[in-house]
Design a protein around this nucleic acid. Structure first.
Lengths: 224, 224
DNA sequence: TCAATAGTGTCTTTCAGACAGTATATA
DNA sequence: TATATACTGTCTGAAAGACACTATTGA
């Protein structure tokens, strides 16, 4: 193995792909860069990892710094590490990408945080396709989308994108927004019923009006 | 964002969890360290990422350097990045972990490569449980195991651990070794038949004797 | 002949997709 | 009253687990 100074030390950053759902549409948080390179381009929130800072902590910090969201209410997970030598034109920067899922009820808080840089939620389906992002961020976003689409069916990540209590329709809306397809309401309800008998979710007090008629409200059981 | 020298630059390594199957048993390649820290402990093959070297390339290089396996015959994928500040007692080292799947027919080549450091295949089921590995390598191995166990059912990674041509029993043996459970031979064969009609695999010439009676030999179709 | 594996078929359960149909709210 | 959504149930087909059964080889 090489001695201490025989190897280069690339700069290390974390980037976070922040998703939410607004108006039944999957959105992604982007920040307009005010520095070169890629000045005025849209980019993912992110920044350098500090000394003695764990990667996940760094991602949390960047997330709260740039969105002012309380960390405990946001789902955050490591995605993939991007280290192509020329992904940053200035110098070598290796980035540990993460993705975050933000409940729609918290989005107003995020909006308020746009004091320094310009911040915007982009629709994944309708606004993102034409957009050129800074660095390799398009690639990172693409992988994050693949990840959440694949994971939605076997991990309870859908619950991270609805309010604490939700109706069957609301959860179905999340699935449809992520997958980009529509689900049969009756069949989706059946999956839902199974989660209910499996105690994954439970009924919550009250009713909510999302359609033509008040619907039963539920909440996610685990870690409630 | 911070200016160029406002952030620390941790050392960057890649580590590779190398799996194979020998005697129907899942094995893991470990190397005995001959330097401090953790001298004489067993550790994952790995090392520093070089200048202008992509992460995947670095993992490939470490793999071939330490096992002398031809890269094109080995499945290699990024696993997770480990960056706890104190994971290396000397200084901060962030490691991008990968995992590799090696066909058993290539293992003799790997054995021959143990010229410099001591290299050994450890049985995951019977030898690993008691063993203390260097750094956080136990944690990395644990995550790699979770990953391949989860991925086995929906991705064609099982084919990476059998010879180019294989019998139904051999493939079942791989599944059993990875999952640590036994599969009903008849039911497994049915899954196999479906892959055959879906053209995922195809019949290969010849027969092979693995049990009491010669069995039909198959090969993986895609990327053959 | 016996033991062991190769290979086939069947019964049952689970779950998804398609879709008919009932119930209850608002406009 | 019309209609949109909430909610229930039924039919069909795909796939997995359990397991009985036949076929073919070596010892």
């Amino acid at each position: 193995m090489a001695r201490k100074d025989d190897h280069p030390r690339p700069a290390l950053t974390v980037d976070v792909v922040v998703f939410t759902i607004l108006d039944s549409d999957l959105k992604l948080l982007l920040i307009r860069r005010d520095l070169e390179p890629y000045r005025d381009s849209w980019a993912l929130p992110g920044g350098f990892v500090r000394e003695d800072e764990d990667l996940m902590r760094a991602a949390e910090r960047e997330l709260t710094e740039e969105t002012s969201l309380p960390r405990e209410h946001v789902f955050l997970e490591q995605l993939y590490t991007f280290g192509a030598p020329a992904r940053d034109p200035r110098e070598r920067v290796v980035s540990v990408a993460h993705y975050a899922l933000v409940r729609p009820e918290l989005v107003p808080l995020a909006r308020a945080a746009s004091d320094a840089a310009e911040t915007r939620w982009y629709s994944v389906a309708s606004e993102l396709p034409g957009l050129e992002l800074a660095f390799d961020h398009e690639q990172i976003v693409e992988l994050a989308l693949e990840r959440i689409r694949g994971k939605l069916d076997y991990a309870p990540i859908g619950f991270e994108l609805v309010p604490r209590t939700f109706t069957v329709s609301e959860l179905r809306g999340v699935f449809e927004a992520i997958k980009g397809t529509s689900y049969d309401p009756a069949n989706f309800r059946r999956r839902f019923r199974r989660m209910l008998t499996d105690k994954v979710i439970e009924e919550a007090p009250g009713k909510r009006q999302t359609g033509a008629r008040p619907a039963t409200v539920y909440r996610f059981t685990a870690g409630g």
